[in-house]
Simulated assay, not measured.
Amino acid sequence: MPPTDESTDAGTARAARAALGSAPGSRAGTGFDPGAGTDCEDTLDLRLSDELIALFAGDTGSRDGTVDGTTTGAVHGARGGSREETPDADDLLDRVGGWGPARTIAGALHLVPVRGGRDLALVHRWMNDPAVAEFWELAGPEAVVEEHVLRQLDGDGRSVPCIGVLDNTPMSYWEIYRADLDPLARHYPARPHDTGIHLLIGGVADRGRGLGSTLLRAVADHVLDRRPSCARVVAEPDLRNTPSVSAFLSAGFRFSAEVDLPGKRGALMIRDRSLRDLL
């Protein structure tokens, strides 16, 4: 793939794609493809923990959207019944809302868990940007975004949707999730406490200038700092989204494998705790 970074002048469409980071994949998948590009050190016989087995036993859904994933879980009630706070089970992710700011060269970034009544209109507007909709596939009426968010808020806490607030300005949407407890784990050799991230940068003015790479590196390292049990941060941007893949590489992730996911072929990107000072 061409060595295109978000900071390069690659045209409006490419810059917009680079800013999208990774997003959820949906529909029936085909399983893990151990083809070219598979990193042998990521393949191992994993003994599933009791926690993982119990959670998978109750997981009958599949991931929604299209450019990375969201977790499954029942949506409780109709519109207007959205949860206003993340559930207590958020401790599956060591309470994201209390992590404090991630320091970046662009300013302090706070990950603020989504509150339905407060944040849905903003996320809905971002999802209806054509450059975003191409990969997230959540454009349409607000009910589409509401359902996507409520699946996480009303779930068991394995995925937490957040607004990224950079120096007091809401400017991005994030999903921090337990990749080892997510349907994604069926498509790659997951390890206990693998933590996944999805990113959407909302404003056009914030795209195409390297900000995505800056934020991805800062949040990935924030995950490793706040989750001592987590040894790897993972993402699976769409392989077609070359600028996004490049942004992850610039953020210190390494390409591990190509994976067939529901609705897309993804690039499995990994940021290792053991390599964070080298990449």
Rank of each mutant, 00 (worst) to 15 (best):
L166E: 07
K264H: 09
S250E: 10
L93E: 07
V132D: 02
G117F: 03
T12S: 11
G65L: 11
R63T: 13
T195P: 13
R240C: 07
V149G: 00
S244K: 04
L92D: 05
P237G: 00
R273A: 07
E134W: 00
L153G: 15
L215Q: 06
L55H: 14
R186E: 13
G203I: 04
Y177I: 02
T71N: 08
V67L: 12
R254E: 15
G117T: 06
L275I: 00
Y173N: 08
A102G: 15
P237F: 00
A19I: 07
C40N: 07
D9E: 12
E137N: 07
R273T: 01
R209A: 07
D129R: 01
V204L: 15
F255D: 02
V145E: 02
L181H: 11
H110V: 07
P113F: 00
G11T: 08
F255K: 01
I201S: 02
E146S: 01
L215S: 08
L48S: 13
A18D: 10
I197W: 00
E175W: 05
I176M: 06
L211S: 03
A36C: 07
L150A: 15
V112R: 15
D45F: 14
S62E: 14
A257K: 08
A205D: 14
G212W: 00
G73F: 10
Y177P: 03
R276G: 01
D260M: 09
A28N: 14
G117W: 03
L166F: 08
C162H: 14
D33C: 04
M127N: 13
H148Q: 05
G155A: 15
A231D: 02
K264A: 14
A102S: 15
E84Q: 02
A231G: 03
T104R: 09
P2A: 14
A18I: 11
G266K: 06
D277K: 01
S49R: 12
R273G: 02
R47W: 11
H193I: 06
P262T: 07
E85C: 04
D9A: 09
L215E: 05
W99A: 06
L268F: 09
E142L: 10
A102H: 13
E85D: 12
L181E: 07
S244R: 04
A89G: 12
E41L: 14
W99F: 07
D33W: 10
A57L: 07
K264E: 14
P262Y: 11
G212E: 01
D59H: 09
F56V: 04
G69Y: 10
D260P: 02
E41C: 13
C230D: 10
R271F: 00
M171L: 13
D94M: 00
H110F: 09
C40G: 06
S159M: 05
A185I: 08
P2N: 13
V219L: 05
D221P: 02
L153Y: 14
A231V: 02
D221Q: 14
A36F: 14
R158H: 12
